[in-house]
């Protein structure tokens, strides 16, 4: 079949909300975009385990410890679902991991920030997972089948993440003065990076248009960011805390909250690799991978031996 004909069928599916599946014909750019987006989403889940995992050993109660382990485990699982989806696009997990370690592939910049106190764990749950959920709910309708299905599974698990984070902050906000201060401090540090999670302004987003046309993306960066601000501006009232933005104000005309401008210098710096934790995050992942080499080899070798013995 001629490429033009295949393209036509492809676009018909997109327009008709029919999912594109692994063996379907797809434009090379569509395949590449999905590989990049899905694998970077997967990397984010895995790298995200590090800032939160750091507090498992110091969780302030056994219940919180158990909850945090379960949550971080979920992140690993999410990474796995996404690597799975990625492999259906014709790339191996190893290749995607190499891209991560070489710096070629990105992961969500938010994880390049340090978790300095226990309250950070709450802030991450409320803000970071909250932002992620917004993005993810939208992605359950993405056009590539395996990606959409992975997102459905992830969304089911993700709401517990946001709730446990908010609960941590709620307990702090009702606690002693030092706990309240810890809570506000964490919100102060995580607010702006969370807004940055939605990416550059639509006007500076080089691929938004094509991603929207191919229904890889269903809402724009700014749209999602606005929804997020509106939601958090209300939720923060329950905590009795403040969002660190003196321009945050309800706009009756727009029926949305107005908010301040993101520090785009910081945004691009962190993306470029100059954030507080970029190096250590990547080094931790490389170390885990490199030090795990002998384990993977041994397991593969043993499986080979078993197969040979069985055949004999």
């Amino acid at each position: 079949m001629a490429t033009l004909e295949l393209e036509k069928i492809f676009l018909q599916k997109i327009d008709g909300e029919v999912k594109i599946e692994p063996k379907d014909w797809m434009p090379d750019a569509y395949r590449k975009t999905n590989i990049r987006q899905v694998s970077q989403h997967a990397h984010s889940e895995i790298v995200g385990m590090l800032p939160e995992g750091a507090w498992i050993s110091r969780a302030p109660s056994l219940k919180r410890k158990a909850i945090l382990i379960a949550k971080v485990q979920d992140e690993a699982g999410h990474g796995l679902y996404l690597y799975s989806a990625c492999e259906t696009l014709g790339i191996t997990r190893e290749e995607t991991i190499n891209d991560l370690h070489s710096g070629k592939a990105k992961y969500s910049s938010i994880f390049n920030y340090p978790t300095l106190t226990w309250a950070d764990i709450g802030a991450i749950g409320w803000l970071v997972d909250g932002a992620a959920i917004m993005n993810q709910v939208m992605l359950t309708r993405t056009s590539y089948g395996p990606y959409a299905r992975a997102m459905v599974r992830i969304c089911k698990e993700e709401s517990f993440h946001q709730r446990q984070g908010f609960e941590i902050l709620l307990v702090l906000s009702n606690g002693r003065d030092e706990q309240k201060a810890m809570c506000q401090d964490a919100i102060d540090r995580w607010w702006w990076p969370s807004l940055m999670m939605f990416g550059p302004h639509d006007s500076e987003s080089t691929n938004s248009e094509q991603s929207m046309k191919w229904k890889i993306k269903r809402k724009t960066n700014d749209e999602l960011r606005q929804n997020f601000v509106d939601m958090c501006a209300e939720q923060v009232k329950v905590l009795g805390m403040k969002i660190p933005d003196d321009k945050l104000k309800w706009n009756e005309e727009r029926m949305h909250y107005d908010f301040g401008e993101i520090n785009w210098d910081e945004f691009w710096n962190v993306v470029k690799g100059n954030g507080p934790c970029n190096k250590q995050r990547l080094e931790a992942r490389k170390k885990a991978w490199d030090e795990g080499e002998w384990v993977r080899e041994a397991a593969a070798a043993h499986a080979e031996k078993r197969k040979k013995r069985k055949a004999a």
Partner: peptide, 21 residues
Amino acid sequence: YLRKFYYGDIPEDKAGSNIVS
């Protein structure tokens, strides 16, 4: 079909280092 697309809309010239492993 020759355009490149990036998660979070990060153009390649603003990306970070590239150590080959």
